[in-house]
Design a protein around this nucleic acid. Structure first.
Lengths: 166, 166
DNA sequence: CTATCTGCAAATCTTTTGCAACGGA
DNA sequence: TCCGTTGCAAAAGATTTGCAGATAG
């Protein structure tokens, strides 16, 4: 029988592809274990949300929802919010505020700092070590332990600076 | 006759105090001129919003509204939003995103960087020169012109670090 | 007098919550 | 079976918009 989610037919939940691009197999096991360690349950929705964040790089809950619904149209936006929240508490994803107000989720693998261009909205990533000097200064001068990855830095990217004649 | 705003009685609009603490006088003229230069009109509401931001240091639209309504209870939240937006386009105030989603307005006089504590929510200000090294690195390494004041930095303040046993 | 502003109400948009039904383990 | 999860609908909170009346210049 065709599997369903929320009473609506969906594609089978992907499990280990033979083409090498399907990444759900081994990682699904990892997610399951992480959940079970805390007495939580593995569900297709949670896997789909994690996969979506992974596929999109960084995305708003809205964008994650759209991505998930390509696979499973019946998944509700509520579940997206709840899953993102859960995955974040599990340390698997992380959110930053890229200005405006839309929170932005990304997988918590390689730590990075977000640079958001005010001109074109592009998000660039740089390694956290550009912040090292600042981190130390804030620690000594203000006693402040900087969380390098949580909030993005705003400014203008090279392209927009050129376009704006400066 | 007692002046009214929106049909509701209010205190007279402050104009130049003799005690030296009332700041509305000369600055009201400045605001008026700035507005007139662009064909816009001076209104009590706009002055009150600017005064509120000035008095509060940094505040959300909601907080600005509460402050304004202490003087003029009839001023609508809609007007707060519209005025903040206008004052920002005039370059008189500025907003930053302190995480979560609540935009935060402050007067655009002394530039500063916001440090937001994730533990207690406290906002600290530091001078932008702590960012100088970073600004240069981003410019040369990523071609990115950093806008130092627009987005806050997250982390934990000294008090919260101590309280959390580390 | 006239175009700009404001207040009010309603519309939007995003995120959260209550609850009955569903479904992992 | 048991209890965590989900979908749905409705609530809640923040911001925006349409419009008629008020008002600055």
């Amino acid at each position: 029988m065709t599997p369903t989610i929320g009473g609506v037919e969906t594609s089978p939940i992907p499990v280990a592809g033979s083409d090498g691009t399907q990444q759900t197999g081994r990682q699904a096991t990892a997610l399951r274990r992480t959940l079970h360690e805390r007495g939580l349950r593995m569900t297709p929705q949670r896997q789909l949300v994690l996969d979506a964040v992974r596929a999109l790089g960084h995305a708003t809950p809205e964008q994650v929802c759209t991505q998930v619904q390509r696979e499973a149209p019946a998944v509700n936006i509520t579940t997206i919010y709840r899953s993102l929240d859960l995955l974040e508490r599990l340390g698997l994803v992380r959110h930053t505020h890229l200005g405006h107000g839309a929170p932005n989720y990304s997988v918590h693998e390689h730590e990075h700092v977000h640079l958001v261009c005010h001109g074109c909205g592009t998000v660039t990533e740089v390694t956290p070590d550009v912040m090292s000097g600042l981190t130390e200064r804030l620690a000594t001068e203000a006693g402040f332990a900087l969380d390098v990855t949580h909030v993005a830095l705003s400014g203008h990217c090279r392209a927009c600076r050129d376009r704006d004649d400066r």
